[in-house]
Design a protein around this nucleic acid. Structure first.
Length: 831
DNA sequence: GCAAGGTC
């Protein structure tokens, strides 16, 4: 029997399909898909990326028992991280008489291949070959299998060196900083070769913003008119041969303003017209896809998770790729013809075919990993996808269409004029031929109208505006700009950059969007700059890339490179040794800063977020025990202190992080004052007390900001029904015939009022809805996944909540236990 | 409970 091993299940299925000519059957072993054909003579199994990982021996597990520097001398072991897959691979290997490694054609793929190689070798003494192909098409795959090669152990060793260096630096320095600051729980302080330079990029920009000193300047605009058309003219002047719009001196600006205001005509001094072509974009790699999706309002992580779903469903190609050149195998005419038969893109695709020969654009990067992201021949209908999935799918299709289209042609018209010794200019643009813009509406095709005028003609001039402005600090980069920057600097990979940014959010290093660094992040970067400069410097990645190339080329060994790296890290620890106290103090102070709100209204000391002995959060005064002032916080979520603050109390707002149900609590003093001013309004009898006690139900507002309908005998009776956190609650005259309670209405800003109705009926409905809400409300569950889950009797969110993750993973192909746990977290977050 | 890299 021949055993074929691929990097992922999806690739295994497609390769089995090609090599078996569609005859392969599927069975499952330990919850892993195995594809079999040739009467069982050939089997194909997919890994899930790395199925083994590097780590220190267990005796190094306790952070307090081990000096971080001791990790430098520790052995590094490989251990199975995906035991089901390892077991399946090894049992198949024992049945096989030869094996073929068909993992992805890149460095990490070679290492994953070597991991499979060693696992097979451990189980059976059989020959093992390697095949390489850069896209899973019939021609490439059959050709690769007809000419098998050997595994490239040097290339795999380059990847292993990276693993070892990343683990050593990351673990040792993370432990050192965490220990020095006394942060040992889940709030440890992490650093790493990729995350720390990424964080420094954000911190450096913040430093520029903080150091920025704005300058005043003025700009002047006026309305010009010719042939009954109004257009905008902007004042400019020439200084040493360059054209300037900004006037840096107020007296000069006032002078120009006076001269333009006193003029009512301008004479055209120049007309320049030129046409320029605007080339269609290159095919999508991961970074450009994330960037385009961001202009549709999707964050990097969300865009990638939708793309993965579309890929798993078979609608688009693999979404993690650096390649921006379509492979030879891709026949754009054939794909356009397929799309031309569909409703949504039919006309656009057909129009491109009508234009004659199709020559797709090429980007700068041609790699062997995967083709650029493009639609496959399987086209979903609009009803097969949710709104977000469709929007992203349409983006991928339209990008493909755009790459097959002609350039757009623009005409630019520049008119200059003179009025009372002042020069004015107007720039117009007109779309002569839309070209690719006709199929790619994500790029603006807005025109600016400037009428056709002749040199020497007269324009009417009116409405001169003098605008006082200030130079602006550099902007914070948004997630997609950061990812583009990381790619340009060679930091991280196509598969990890978006995760790195999410990790920075999770670790409390950045907040908001565009991300800004916390005080902790500033302190971590400062500490690293002072003592372990390499770990925040992207130069470390560049050096590592060079070293890996040397290993891959046989010019250095894994030991040469890792020994040198160990020595360098050893020198970092020599420096750090004496500074442990100072570093710890700096980090602890920054951590506190991130929790400080502002002055205590009682004593003038500082209010800070604290945690009670029972684990709940509250706001207390740093003047404790002299000042015992405290404020409650909501019970759900982790509090973080935001940068914007309450004008009345000068206190920073508090946000409660609770996954999808994250919300802004605001100023705790305002909330406490509102609760104190609120009078409980009795609306009926309490059904919880029974007749004996005769408690009443009232609309209550708590200090924590929560609102509820609860019993007036609280805490003796704790009957309560939840109410929304936002908006004004109005109690109506109408009463519920069943519960004898009044209907409630919530007024929230400009939106239509929200009719809650009777609070008991409303609560019952809410629970009902929650129990039956559709599964595909969840991130990462499309219709196909929902259908597969239904076969395992999981049809609602409450079914999912009650399910055993391991059991689901065993029964449903393509769904892991971790994935199920993610979904369960989402359900919990939403309730 | 550390990293980064695969994958889901």
């Amino acid at each position: 029997m021949e055993l074929i091993v691929t990097e992922k299940d999806n690739a295994a299925r497609r390769i089995a399909d090609i090599l078996s000519d569609g005859s392969a059957g599927t069975d499952r072993r330990n919850g892993v898909n195995v594809y079999r054909w040739d009467g069982g003579g050939t089997v194909c199994v997919g890994l899930s990326g790395h199925v083994v990982g590097v780590d220190f021996p267990p005796e190094y597990d306790d952070w307090r028992d081990v000096q971080p520097v001791e990790l430098l001398e520790a052995d590094i072991e490989k251990r199975a991280t995906q035991e089901n897959i390892v077991r399946t691979l090894q049992s198949l290997a024992r049945e096989a008489d030869r094996a073929v490694i068909a993992t992805d054609y890149d460095r990490e793929g070679e290492l994953i291949g070597k991991e499979a190689y060693e696992l097979i070798e451990e189980a059976a003494a059989i020959p093992i070959e390697r095949v390489r192909f850069s896209s899973i098409t019939e021609r490439e795959v059959t050709e690769a299998f007809a000419n098998p090669d050997e595994l490239d152990f040097d290339l795999a060793a380059a990847g292993e060196a990276r693993q070892i260096i990343d683990l050593l630096w990351g673990a040792a320095l993370t432990r050192f900083l965490s220990l020095s600051a006394g942060q040992l729980g889940e709030d440890f302080i992490s650093v790493g070769r990729v995350q720390s330079p990424t964080l420094k990029l954000i911190v450096d920009r913040e430093r520029e913003i903080q150091a920025f000193d704005p300058d005043d300047y003025w700009e002047l605009f006026t309305t010009l008119r010719a042939d009954g058309v109004d257009f905008e003219g902007q004042y400019f002047y020439e200084d040493e041969g360059t054209e300037n719009e900004r006037v840096w001196n107020e007296a000069d600006a006032d002078d120009a303003h006076a001269r333009l205001t006193s003029a009512d005509r301008a004479t055209v001094t120049g007309v320049r017209r030129r046409t320029r072509s605007d080339d269609p974009p290159a095919p999508f790699n991961t970074t450009q896809f994330i960037s385009a999706a961001s202009s549709l309002g999707y964050g990097a992580g969300r865009a990638m998770s939708i793309a993965e779903e579309l890929y798993t469903a078979g609608y688009i190609t693999y979404p993690r790729t650096d390649n921006t050149v379509y492979p030879e195998d891709l026949n754009p005419e054939a794909l356009l013809a397929t799309l031309a038969d569909t409703g949504a893109f039919g006309e656009d695709a057909a129009s491109l075919l009508d234009d004659g020969e199709v020559e797709p654009t090429r980007g700068d990067t041609e790699t062997t990993d995967h083709p650029p992201i493009h639609p496959t021949g399987e086209v979903p209908g609009r009803a097969d996808l949710g709104d977000d999935e469709w929007a992203v799918y349409e983006l991928v299709v339209r990008r493909f269409l755009a790459t097959c289209a002609e350039p757009a042609e623009w005409e630019y018209l520049r008119v200059t004029a003179e009025a009372n010794d002042c020069q004015l200019k107007a720039n117009g643009k007109r779309l002569l031929d839309p070209g690719y813009l006709a199929v790619y509406p994500y790029v603006s095709s807005d025109e600016t109208l400037v009428p056709d005028v002749d040199e020497g003609s007269e324009l009417a001039l009116a409405d001169t505006r003098l605008e006082a402005k200030q130079t602006q600090p550099p902007r914070r980069r948004g997630q997609s700009r950061l990812i583009e920057e990381l790619e340009a600097r060679g930091v991280g990979t196509k598969s990890t950059r978006h995760n790195t940014i999410e990790k920075l959010y999770d670790r409390g290093y950045i907040e908001n969007d565009p991300p800004r660094p916390t005080r902790l992040a500033m302190a971590v970067v400062e500490a690293a700059e002072a003592f372990a400069e390499q770990v925040v410097d992207e130069e470390m990645t560049r050096q590592l890339e060079q070293d890996m190339t040397a290993i891959a080329d046989g010019e250095a060994t894994l030991d040469d490179v890792t020994d040198e790296s160990r020595a360098m890290l050893g020198r970092v620890f020599d420096e750090l040794h004496d500074s442990r106290e100072a570093v710890g103090e700096q980090l602890r102070e920054a951590l506190k800063d991130d929790k400080r709100l502002g002055p205590c209204p009682e004593c003038g000391e500082t209010l800070i977020v604290r945690r009670s002995r029972r684990g709940s959060y509250f706001v207390g005064c740093e003047g404790f025990p002299e000042c015992e002032n405290t404020y409650q916080l909501p019970s759900n979520g982790e509090p973080t202190v935001m940068t914007d603050s309450c004008e009345e109390h000068g206190l920073r707002h508090v946000k409660m992080l609770a996954g999808r149900s994250t919300f802004v609590h605001g100023c705790p003093v305002c909330k406490a004052e509102a609760a104190a001013a609120h009078e409980d309004e009795v609306i009926g009898d309490c059904p919880g007390c029974g007749e004996a006690h005769g408690g009443d139900l009232a609309v209550k507002q708590l200090q924590s900001g929560s609102r509820l309908v609860g019993c007036t005998r609280y805490p003796d009776c704790d009957y309560s029904l939840p109410l929304p956190r936002r908006g004004d609650i109005e109690v109506l005259e109408e009463r519920c015939p069943e519960h004898d309670l009044p209907d409630l209405v919530v007024h929230d800003g400009d939106d239509d009022p929200w009719e809650l109705g009777c609070p008991i009926c409303n609560y019952e409905e809410f629970q009902e809805r929650r129990a039956t809400r559709d599964l595909d409300d969840l991130d990462g569950v499309g219709e196909k996944t929902a259908a597969k889950l239904a076969e395992a009797d999981i049809e609602s969110l409450s079914d999912l909540e009650a399910a055993d993750p391991e059991g689901v993973a065993d029964r449903v192909s393509g769904v892991s236990a971790d994935r199920v746990r993610d979904w369960q977290d989402q359900v919990e977050g939403a309730s």
